[in-house]
Amino acid sequence: MQELLPLYVLGALDADEAEQVAVHLPLCPSCTADLVRFESVTGALAAPLKPVTPDPSLRSKLFERIAETPQETAVPLAAAAPVATAMPNVVSLTKPRKMPWQTWLVAAAAALLILAGGAGYWINSLANDRDDAQQTVAMLTEFMAPGSTTITLPPMTASNYGDTQGSSKLMKDPEGDMLLMVANCPPSTDDRVYKVWVAIGDDRAMVGEMTINADGSGWMPVSFPGEMPNPEVLGVSVQTNGGLTDLFVGSMTG
């Protein structure tokens, strides 16, 4: 996988290869470190180029647009706050810089339960594994910290399953780590595959496939693909025998 990273940062991989890398990166601290190293090269490669001064009118036009453009608003995770308050001895722990994938899963599940109003059940379920509980709460503390944001991905018509309505949220912590969660959707099967993607206009790029568990929930860390680092939208679709159907689509541009 590491051999693909130099091509990945240049956007020179085929879409399927880029998708493999994007899915792998959140799981591999070593590759993430290499990615940062190659990203610095792509930035530095512009240094020898001759600077070109923009037309002076461009600056005033830019600020005319800025005057009409609101900034992205940070939305505090109010629903999760009582958990942190209830366990001050645990949340004061220092979060490890890199956490194992298993902890991500626990944290994601916990976050999902919190969003669903099941925080009490979650805390009890972790009582037999205090290390995991401590790491999980520390992780959640990060997602609940000032500067964290939650974006609700608006549901499309297809996410209404009669008596249940699917929902999806994207959590972003102050360090930029993102966690996508889905609830109340039919579990994944060989014939029902959930796909996460980003898009600019009509151009889409795959982020990865998400597994929806038997309880209807699913989660995955999200990294925007190298060929589309600043997408306009993030979406979740389901691939069935009937084709690809969009379930949730949310703006990433505020």
Partner: peptide
């Protein structure tokens, strides 16, 4: 302006990040 938090200072210098985003 819209999304200033997309820059993470832990991922490198701003100038390099900006040029990388500009290139992409």
């Amino acid at each position: 302006w819209q999304r200033p938090h997309t820059y993470d200072s832990q991922r490198g210098a701003f100038a390099g990040w900006l040029l990388r985003v500009a290139r992409n």
